[in-house]
Amino acid sequence: MFYLSITGFFPDDKQDESLQYQFDIEGDQLNQDVAQLTESKPLEELQPGELELTKIQVAQLSTLLKINLRNDLEYFIGLRSRP
Rank of each mutant, 00 (worst) to 15 (best):
Y3T: 07
Y3P: 04
L4F: 03
I6G: 03
T7N: 10
T7Q: 11
G8P: 01
G8T: 04
F9W: 07
F10C: 09
P11H: 05
P11L: 12
P11E: 11
D12G: 09
D13P: 03
Q15G: 10
D16M: 01
E17D: 14
S18F: 15
L19D: 02
L19N: 04
Q20L: 07
Y21P: 00
I25V: 07
G27S: 04
G27K: 03
D28M: 13
L30N: 03
L30K: 04
N31C: 08
Q32P: 06
Q32I: 07
Q32V: 06
V34D: 05
A35L: 05
Q36W: 12
L37F: 01
T38W: 01
S40Q: 15
S40N: 15
P42W: 04
E45M: 08
L46K: 10
Q47W: 12
P48V: 05
P48S: 12
P48R: 09
E50S: 02
E50A: 06
L51T: 14
L51I: 15
E52R: 14
E52Q: 14
K55Y: 08
K55H: 03
I56H: 06
I56E: 11
I56M: 09
I56T: 12
Q57C: 01
V58K: 06
Q60P: 01
Q60L: 09
Q60Y: 05
L61I: 06
S62I: 07
T63H: 15
T63Q: 15
T63F: 15
L64R: 10
L64F: 09
L65C: 09
I67L: 11
I67P: 05
N68R: 14
N68L: 13
L69A: 05
L69I: 00
L69H: 00
L69M: 08
N71Y: 02
N71I: 01
N71Q: 03
D72K: 10
D72W: 10
E74N: 14
E74D: 13
E74M: 12
Y75D: 02
F76S: 02
I77C: 03
G78H: 07
L79C: 06
R80C: 12
R80F: 06
S81F: 14
